[in-house]
Amino acid sequence: MTAYTATVEVRLKHGVLDPEAETTGRALERLGFELEDLRAADRFEVDLEADSADDAAERAGEMAERLLANPTIHDYEVSVEER
């Protein structure tokens, strides 16, 4: 068994309105920053022990499917690093 950190990034699917990100972008503009768009995402870092990086990624993917993401509105990405 090897120690890994699996990182799961959950973001709204393209085309799904993100009012919080829009509000945040407008607040940045009020502070004088110039920007074209802003997207927000949730990032989860899961420490786990697994036989292989693939195994760790598979388990993190299942966590995303079953809880961390809502497949109706979210896409997610999993990456794995040895700890």
Partner: peptide, 17 residues
């Protein structure tokens, strides 16, 4: 209900935030 798939779709942040 939507989070548990009893019903379809999702309820998410109001347009007004």
């Amino acid at each position: 209900g939507c989070e548990s798939s009893l019903t379809p779709g999702a309820f998410t942040t109001n347009e007004s935030a």
